[in-house]
């Protein structure tokens, strides 16, 4: 366990080294939030309902989505780097689980994001944008759990994509296409209730909805309690599904390393 904590700490340190990047990342998130608010403000200005609950719901949805996006950032090229540099072979000789290492490294990246980027963005969101508070303390708890599970769903999907590094030398395209699918089908871009039916249904049945739209819907109190449980269960199922696929791929990858020597 101790080893994995060290991996996470190392990842945090590596991120801190890039000074300019750290400052810019904060502003990046805040700018994104402001652009979107301006667009939705323009829409609601016309309908003259800026003070209405509808507008604040939309804003809260969008802001939560960006805050989550700003911490759901992972080191997408770690495995590709390990495979291409050949250091994967030495990693496998070490008495640690490689997938455990990848996970703890990414937890480190997320912790760094929380410290450096989320805190200031959250302050702005609360004081300047005036997002709605969570529906109730209990809902807040469900939301926290669901965010964590959302992260794990995204992580598990990502893992499957990353592991293709063993079969293809440059996975930029896979990652980018995956990102596009995640963004469009997870409800991260706009509140799902504005979506046409076919897309709304796609968000519900694909695993992507479990990443952003489920936690946000819980926060906004749009799900009755029983449905919260089923949605959380659904998140867990998706985690298991993609973890199983990931493990299978990793199993094949290991064989490949043994046969080809990395």
């Amino acid at each position: 366990m101790r080893t994995y904590v060290e991996f996470a700490k190392k990842a945090i340190q590596n991120n801190i080294v890039y000074r300019v990047n750290s400052y810019a990342g904060i502003i990046n998130t805040i700018v994104m939030i402001f652009v979107n608010i301006a667009i939705w403000r323009a829409i609601y200005e016309e309908e003259a309902t800026l003070e209405g609950l509808q507008f604040r719901l939309v804003i809260t949805y969008i802001v939560l989505s960006f805050l989550m996006q700003s911490i759901f950032v992972m080191d997408e090229y770690l495995i590709q780097y390990k495979v291409r540099s050949g250091s994967i072979s030495t990693d496998m000789l070490r008495p640690i689980s490689f997938l455990g290492y990848v996970f703890s490294h990414n937890i480190g990246v997320m912790l760094f994001r929380i410290i450096i980027q989320l805190t200031p963005a959250l302050l702005v969101a609360i004081f300047f944008v005036k997002i709605l508070p969570p529906f109730s303390p209990l809902i807040a708890l469900y939301f926290a759990i669901s965010v964590l599970l959302g992260y794990l769903v995204l992580y598990s999907i990502n893992l499957v994509v990353w592991l293709t590094s063993f079969w293809y030398f440059e996975i930029f395209s896979f990652i980018t296409i995956k990102d596009a699918a995640v963004m469009i089908l997870s409800g991260a871009l706009l509140p799902i209730w504005f979506m046409p039916n076919w897309l709304y249904n796609l968000v519900q049945i694909t695993p992507f909805g479990s990443i952003y739209s489920v936690p946000i819907s819980i926060y906004l109190g749009q799900l009755p309690e029983t449905e919260i449980y089923t949605k959380i269960l659904l998140q867990i199922i998706w985690i298991i599904v993609f973890q199983v696929i990931g493990r299978l791929l990793w199993h094949c990858a290991q064989k490949r390393i043994v046969v080809q020597g990395g």
């Binding site: 667009i39 829409i43 930029f172 395209s173 896979f174 980018t176 296409i177 990102d179 596009a180 699918a181 963004m183 469009i184 871009l189 706009l190 504005f194 979506m195 046409p196 897309l199």
Partner: peptide, 16 residues
């Protein structure tokens, strides 16, 4: 991949 990535914002605009 780039085409798909750029379509994200087009889709958002389209949906709105």
């Amino acid at each position: 991949a780039i085409f798909c990535r750029e379509m994200i914002s087009i889709v958002t605009m389209y949906l709105i």
